[in-house]
């Protein structure tokens, strides 16, 4: 699936998007996999309360299932307006 990063999440991980092969059942499982990869992911995903997630461009929760999802995006709380 495509995994996208925005704002300081993108900066900490060092790339805007990547394709990840995963069997993670939920967003939280995917986060655990990413955290275990490398230090930069561990740093980016250190505090989940400071992060938001969207599944196929809809805001979702970290316990949401990933079955059928094509695009996951991680980003900090939004600051529009």
């Amino acid at each position: 699936m495509d995994v996208l990063y925005f704002a300081w999440v993108r900066e900490r991980i060092g790339l805007p998007r990547e394709v990840i092969e995963t069997t993670a059942a939920t967003v939280a499982d995917l986060v655990a996999e990413l955290r275990a990869r490398e230090e930069r992911y561990a740093v980016a995903f250190e505090d989940l309360s400071a992060l938001r997630v969207a599944l196929d461009q809809e805001l979702a929760d970290f316990d949401a299932p990933l079955a059928g999802v094509r695009e996951v995006a991680f980003f900090p709380p939004m600051t529009g307006g």
Binding site: F6, A7, W8, A54, L59, A73, F75, P76, P77, M78, T79, G80, G81
Partner: peptide, 22 residues
């Protein structure tokens, strides 16, 4: 729009750049 539209603001000044916190 302030907190549910996916925009992120960053302020850049002589002292550096900082993401605006919600």
């Amino acid at each position: 729009l302030k907190s549910r539209a996916p925009f992120w603001k960053r302020e850049i000044s002589a002292t550096g750049a900082a993401w605006v916190a919600a």
